[in-house]
Design a protein around this nucleic acid. Structure first.
Lengths: 213, 213, 213, 213
DNA sequence: GATGAATGAGGCTTCATTCAT
DNA sequence: AATGAATGAAGCCTCATTCAT
């Protein structure tokens, strides 16, 4: 038998991950059976084990893909001209646009990270990458004179993480949560930390326009 | 009289809940067996079913007890002379003092709430109680002149909830999280929302009106 | 503590048997729990074990009581002036008057008799008693010239038993069974066996009136 | 091709049913464990659940197969030249040839039919099929002039059913039952109902020889 | 490579019986 | 005597994983 083309293989792997994501989000890791996932992916049970050698590995695969995406999206922030706006956009993406089922999946992954070493490593590594990344971003912005925080950038990054985590959690857990109602305030808080001058929560774009005035 | 005194019954029920809490926090609802809990509580498997008619009921019992406690603790805020300080104390209690295992349990309950109707109802009911309670607290404080928020109290309550959720999540998920390093900043944010003098936590709407002045 | 009066004891025993009968008929021996019976009898679980030392013993007790009653009722036939009429009346009693739930109970007992030695002995002893009794009854009636069967009385008794068993079974199993539609025919068959003269299904009373004419 | 050939699947299903039949007959539905059946069929416990999704389904499967066989065998009567002889043969088959364990199984099924809706439907549907079938058979025979009953054919069918049920019950319940001793009489009774002329219990074959004389 | 039937350990739950009160 | 809480052995069923085809 000819080995499947790598591209076909990769596509099937993605389909399996998609199906797994849907199942895991709906029912949780432990209430989802391998058969559920195989059916969802339109693949035989045996084929599942060709791509993932165990359920554990599949869970790790899901965590890996989900976290990688976050990491990639975060990396995009580095080049943004207006940091606060870019962060707001990212927050909006996760909080408003993303479908509900993905939101619960993040929680599932986070909780699993507490107990499953493989998932834990993936999770914490991305988490640290993002946290450090924010600190560096802020550090660079300060060096460039784009922000003038009164606080340690490390602390600002952590408070931002807490805010992000809180949004993550609430949007997943509270069906009545109106993200749009709080986003401006939350961005203002962030702006206030970065530029605690007279015009506390002013965003960078506003300031620069003032400068030009 | 073979009928146990209600107090004895209640005590044994509590012991079972304690054991269940420990097991659930350590391994999650679905990796914990009824036998684990029975052993942990020092009772026979059969006895477990005298107090809780199913695993589902036991999970609901855990959610109930945990949320009730939160509700009770929140209720204590009403009488506090200094609101921000009291909230800070409560946050500190949950974030610093409480043992790690209880923290993960909260997450487990929250995630379960998305899939288990019984747990969901308990969870959401307390959540709404707390959210509404904060809004009322702030409303009353404003009426008394103790605070002068620029924002809708409902929105402040929601941002506070997001902050609280973020702390909850992070303290459970991130072993390196240093709550003490961010608490002052977070309380300052809260203070800024409630009393946006100094201009510290000034909201965007205020600023924009200033700009126009 | 004063021992309960024997009459109270006996009454309670009967109540337990009544409750057991109802439960067993409704759900079968093995789907009925001791708790079901205790509740039905308005008695504590512990008390049940005072009167019957095991479930097995309770089943045997039910079989015993049920079969004794049959035996007593059969014994009443001996004195009947018109044998066929008396048998018809007995058949009618069991087939028409008795409540449905008792009917299924008989089946349950019969089936249990195949597997449970204690019940089997009770069951077979009564069965033989009735079978032998019929043969003797017929024998005596022949000696008295009240019947003139062409067949061995033992065989007639057995055919009668088959007819009775068939009625027993069908009335219990077939909700549409109309006993009244077949009883006359069945009695005629019996009459025909006992007096196979020209007028096959003639009853004794009819014949005797003819004789007197 | 890992998918088993339908014939192999069917064969294995039959083996499981055979094993289940043996176990159920010996110990009854509720005293038989799924493990007993699996062992008896030489398959693993898990494999049982590939073929029958629950114990309930297995019981229904047994009822289905057993009743279908009865229905098929009954259908064969339609073509028999001598009705009474054919019925006698069928009765003999069930009463004499069939192994004892199958007999008790029929009882078990009948009793279960009172309480289990699935089994009840199977049971009653076949029962009605047979009852109606007999009535039609008799009706046709009368139209053809092969019999000249004095009774409603529906009633004859019902009395025949009662006789059949009685034989069923007794052969299963009474280890001393001598079917051969009563069969001639019972067939004579049937003959007598179908042709209640002078020689009441005459069989059809006898009559036809007379006719030819 | 692909398939899905087979495996069997392990989980939840029930229930006859005992026994401390 | 009476009570009903406690016990723990089984029973039904699920499901991750393997493997013959």
């Amino acid at each position: 038998m000819p080995r499947l083309k790598p591209s076909t293989q990769a596509a099937r792997r993605e389909r399996i991950l998609d199906a797994a994501e849907a199942c895991f989000a709906r029912a949780g890791f432990h209430r989802t059976t391998m058969q559920d996932i195989a059916s969802g992916a339109g693949v035989s049970l045996g084929a599942l084990y060709v791509y993932f050698k165990s359920k554990e590995a599949l869970i790790a695969g899901i965590a890996e893909r989900d976290r990688s995406k976050l990491q990639r999206e975060f990396a995009g922030l580095a080049d943004a001209p207006d940091l606060v706006a870019a962060i707001g956009k990212l927050g909006e993406h996760y909080t408003v646009e993303e479908p509900q089922y993905k939101r619960v999946l993040c929680l599932e992954i986070g909780v699993e990270a507490t107990r499953n070493e493989a998932v834990g490593q993936i999770f914490r590594s991305v988490d640290r990458f993002v946290l450090d990344g924010f600190a560096q971003l802020f550090e660079r912005a300060r060096a460039d004179g784009r922000i003038a925080p009164a606080l340690d950038t490390r602390t600002i990054a952590m408070v931002l993480a807490v805010l992000g985590d809180g949004l993550f959690w609430r949007r997943a857990i509270d069906p009545d949560f109106d993200a749009k109602a709080v986003m401006p305030t939350i961005l203002a808080i962030l702006g206030g930390m970065l530029n605690p001058t007279g015009a506390a929560a002013q965003t960078q774009s506003e300031r620069s326009s003032e400068t030009h005035a």
